[in-house]
Design a protein around this nucleic acid. Structure first.
Lengths: 147, 147
DNA sequence: ATCAATAATGAAGTGACTTCACTATGTACT
DNA sequence: AGTACATAGTGAAGTCACTTCATTATTGAT
């Protein structure tokens, strides 16, 4: 049977539900939650940030960042430092352990990707990306970060 | 650029994050949350259920179902009835409004699917489903409901 | 008649997140 | 300098998803 748009949509939602759940579970085994993992991801990508910037990057309130960073700091993944020029602000950076965790996230994602999809034809993978992009562009608001 | 497994994985996760968010938002406009919507979906699919069965279908605790049904009942989407043969149990069924909501969910999903993906080549859609199935089968635990 | 399994619910707790009020600073304007 | 407003972070309190641990009705099976 060829491709039915509705079937594709259903698969996409199934992905949302089940892949999301699998991710949550994998993170939980490392003592992380999706939100906390995202903090780590962003800090690894952008370097040390002030909490307000972190809130923007995560799309949540600054207040919530306070709590997230509290927990992460308590777990030794992140550290707070006084901002060099602005005494109101607090700079948040990954610790060694935090950086290790970030590497683990990237590596295991890459490994899984290759193990699971490595033998599929390039054409299929490219088509998946095309369809996914279409859905993403049409359906989704996207945390705006334009020009 | 052809298909890179890692890029595909990343897209899949982006779908998880952004499509999930879009769904939550669409539901919120109708006063629903993902969990409550799932109750409606399951009841529409399986007919009236006892709360314990509902809990199994949703993969959550019976205790949580109590609360979900409370809210839905209060909103007039669902009704509780004494179970005909087992006086411990409570049967939960959709009301007219609940059934309408279920129809809305199905219809809008179908409409969006056609509007967004209708013009893509069948081959792409079929490839998407193949790749998604691969991910689903390999990565995911799946709420077991086998033979 | 009795006793263990079962259906639902109260009580209390966790994690994600919010809004609102408040403190400490930074900035700008006179 | 002096006043006034904006900004960074946090305490307090609340919502929603979801849990575990009693406790109360029943049921079913001996």
């Amino acid at each position: 049977m060829a491709g039915d748009p509705v079937e594709v949509f259903d698969k996409a939602f199934e992905l949302v539900a089940r892949l999301g759940e699998a991710m949550r579970q994998a993170l939980a085994e490392r003592g992380l939650t999706a939100s906390r993992a995202e903090v780590i991801y962003v800090l690894a990508r952008d370097g040390a940030l002030v909490q307000r910037e972190l809130a923007q990057a995560l799309g949540c309130t600054p207040r919530h960042v306070t709590g997230l960073v509290d927990t992460l700091q308590h777990g030794g993944l992140v550290e707070r430092r006084p901002h060099p020029t602005d005494r109101r602000a607090i700079s948040v950076a990954l610790t060694e352990r935090g950086a290790d965790t970030a590497r683990w996230m990237t590596d295991s994602r890459r490994q899984s990707a290759r193990a699971i999809l490595g033998d599929l034809p390039d054409a299929d993978l490219a088509a998946f990306v095309r369809v996914a992009d279409r859905i993403l562009n049409e359906v989704v608001p996207a945390t705006e970060n334009p020009a």
